[in-house]
Design a protein around this nucleic acid. Structure first.
Lengths: 238, 238
DNA sequence: AAGGGCTTGTGACAGTAATCACACCCAAAA
DNA sequence: TTTTGGGTGTGATTACTGTCACAAGCCCTT
């Protein structure tokens, strides 16, 4: 099955390869089939908005392929990115459960696919399947944890360099490093990085320069190489 | 029934006056009685820690009387207060549901009382009563919303004066104001206010001075009077 | 090859809030 | 009464980072 934007459509949750590890996975056969019935799927181009901050929740989106960024903005136009989502993530769950407006905007960062589950259907489904409600509660509390990470970063890590170092470390799993350091594909612009750590584009540029000069990292094209992990960890401290 | 710290003990959740509006309220009679069985109650002095950031979750606390502050700290000793809790609030729920360490420290700001529900008992109770699990999910998503408010304040509201104005407004419900302005009992130290808005004690002192000079507010002993609400709203903007 | 649009690098400058320092106030204890 | 200690007010100084400005780079289209 072919789709726009050069993607292959995944049309059945029961056989999807990402289903193993996530929220609506390993359900009873009955529940799984029911869920498969009430979902619909769609393909999105880069830049597509799944939903926008302040909208009444229509339903949840299960990201099947592609990456999305979640952000929130002030009236004056300042924006912060609160999370980068990968395939498997469930977006908009909190708003649907609490019936409040979406608290963030979800924008596709690359072409992708998402399943949509309408609000009413999901709530009905959860009432019928009490055991899944507890799974949802667990997911929500994990979301809450992530939010608290964000609060700690924004509120406790004072300087931009500290937050930048923290971000770099979060990109480089200790495991994936060889003796030359860790390699990461850099897909974000300086502007986006600035919106993640709550500073300006210019400051991010200067941080890159500074860290390169101090041999903490290195850039080859769009590949980022972490050169001195311990030094970064020292900058983070907290 | 008398207790230490001059409090009257509330010993039965089924007849408690704060039960109407909160999480474990208006349950079926059966569920309510079961919950009443597995909870225990205790009285705490000012400064008591219900739990500390990083501890494995032992259970949840339902605050029956008194106020508590929730805070998180960095290794270097910087602290931010993320929430002030009132009677009726359920503390530690996220950690128990997701089985992760408490993400905050809960400290009593005045003498009070809290019911304790052990982790295992609560989880068992939720499995038996699927309808309550959905209520818990709703509560968690409300917590998540509050966390996002915090993220927006920390990440988008740039200047201390903006955050300070925001805090003042959150203390003064529009309703409770007469023509002289809104009166609020001020129970926090400048230091604590600083920890809420993420700045220093000195800056808070200066903000009080500045806002008094501009006739935005007024202090009579420990009573704070909001004099010019519109001006504060204008400072907040976002 | 040339053009346009987005992205990046870096200098100059200004303003704000953190830090340090000290005096003051007030209430509770000795 | 004096003492003590937590809380508060405010000056001086400094460092940092946001803002503005502009040049240069990169990639895609024409």
């Amino acid at each position: 099955m072919r789709a726009p934007y050069g993607l292959n459509i995944l049309d059945n949750c029961l056989t999807c390869s990402v289903r193993e590890e996530h929220l609506f996975c390993n359900l009873s056969i009955h529940a799984g089939q029911r869920l498969n019935e009430i979902k619909s799927t769609a393909v999105y181009p880069k830049g597509a908005m799944l939903f926008i901050e302040g909208q009444q929740p229509r339903g949840v989106f299960v990201l099947c392929a592609g990456k999305a960024k979640l952000s929130t903005s002030s009236r004056e136009g300042k924006t912060i990115i609160t999370k980068l989502s990968d395939s498997g993530d469930v977006l908009g769950l909190n708003s649907v459960i609490s019936d409040r407006p979406y608290e963030v905007t979800a924008e596709m960062m690359e072409p992708g696919q998402a399943n949509f589950i309408p609000r009413e259907s999901l709530l009905q489904f959860l009432k019928e399947h009490g055991e899944v409600a507890l799974r949802v509660a667990e997911q929500l509390s994990r979301n809450y944890y992530t939010a608290y990470e964000e609060i700690r970063t924004l509120g406790l890590a004072t300087s931009p360099s500290e937050k930048f170092a923290k971000l770099l470390l979060s990109w480089s799993p200790k495991s994936a490093s060889n003796d030359n350091g860790t390699q990461v594909k850099l897909t974000l612009t300086h502007e986006e990085i600035a919106e993640i750590i709550g500073t300006t584009r210019e400051t991010v540029s200067r941080l890159f320069s500074e860290f390169k000069r101090k041999q903490l990292l290195q850039l080859k094209g769009s590949t980022l190489i972490i050169r001195n992990r311990p030094a970064l960890e020292k900058i983070v401290q907290s």
